[in-house]
Design a protein around this nucleic acid. Structure first.
Length: 295
DNA sequence: AGACGTACCTGACCGC
DNA sequence: TGCGGTCAGGTACGTC
């Protein structure tokens, strides 16, 4: 599911519900996700109150009153669901956690209970996500965050930055933009879409992307992400908001998962094709995104 | 150092 | 209906 727009959507939905709430209980239904939970995770969380919920790259950062920060990553299939706690504890069956849409309660790995009688449920079928709790002062140096590139919607991601970063790389542009050290938060969907709008082939070698294309690429990345956030993210397969509603940016996909369909560019009826780069699918229009002839 | 392949999981979908 | 193969939005680690 989640690239930057989806995580931002989750963050915006969760923040008003979580802010100023005390964590009254943490239920762990397993001992690890992609990596083990910190051994004393419950001790660090229970009794603290939530100061702030924000996003960095694809990570949710939950700032706590006790000077710890909880880091949550949704991996490929993670979601966060919320539900009201039953008044009668005996009525707290798994059904209470069963989301009306499609998630399976057997993947409810962590449940946070809040002072306002809300349950916040971390559900992740593939368990590629992670949760960690670290001292807030070590946030900027922790291994999960310290190698992340700039936020694509922030001021430091600009034409100057991107042209320097690409000039040093002999990888195809598709792979460079997926590298979280270069720019943080893009995934396969939004890289494909951004390259289409910038009319750059995913096969173009990063250092050979023409100088004129760089400002356009900065713009299309920002524009695609902004429009996706405005649409509430993309609901592919199983992405739902924490309240169960759906994002709808998938209806704006021009190339992603559009293999065989006609390119939507005016007067171009070429078919969108799919290729594989480093084991990941790339979708593009071979006419609109033709490889530039090397100088 | 940079680039690449692979591993980590489950579920959905397709063709036979 | 069932089975096997393939694919999926991400990250980390080992190797060259």
């Amino acid at each position: 599911m989640p690239e930057l727009p989806e995580v931002e959507t989750v963050c915006r939905g969760l923040a008003p519900l979580l802010q100023k709430q005390t964590i009254t209980n943490v239920i762990l239904n397993r001992s690890s996700l992609r990596k083990p939970f910190p051994a004393d995770m419950q001790t660090k969380l229970i009794g603290s109150s939530i100061r702030e919920v924000r996003r960095r790259s694809k990570y949710l950062l939950v700032t706590l009153s006790n000077s710890y920060t909880m880091i949550i990553h949704l991996g490929m299939s993670g979601r966060i669901l919320t539900s009201a706690m039953a008044q009668n504890p005996s009525a707290t069956s798994q059904n209470a956690f069963h989301h009306p849409t499609s998630n399976n309660p057997k993947h409810n790995h962590v449940i946070f209970e809040l002072g306002n009688k809300t349950r916040v449920i971390y559900n992740d079928p593939r368990r590629f996500g992670l949760i960690d709790v670290i001292p807030s002062e070590t946030l900027s140096t922790c291994s999960l965050l310290n190698n992340l590139g700039p936020e694509p919607l922030g001021n430091t991601f600009n034409e100057t930055y991107l042209s320097h970063a690409l000039a040093r790389s002999e990888r195809p542009i598709k792979l460079a933009l997926l590298d979280q050290r270069l720019v943080a938060g893009l995934g396969n969907i939004y890289v494909c879409e951004s390259l289409y709008h910038a009319r750059i082939s995913p096969l173009e070698i990063s250092s050979q992307v023409s100088a004129q294309k760089i400002p356009l690429l900065v713009h299309t990345i920002r524009d695609v992400l902004t429009r996706a956030i405005d649409a509430g993210g993309s609901s592919l397969r199983d992405f739902h908001h924490s309240d169960g509603s759906l994002g709808y940016f998938q209806y704006n996909f021009q190339v992603y998962a559009q293999e065989g369909k006609a390119c939507q560019t005016t007067d171009c009826k070429e078919k969108i094709i799919r290729i594989t780069q480093s084991g990941r699918s790339s979708f593009y229009c071979p006419i609109c995104q033709a490889l530039q002839i090397a100088q």
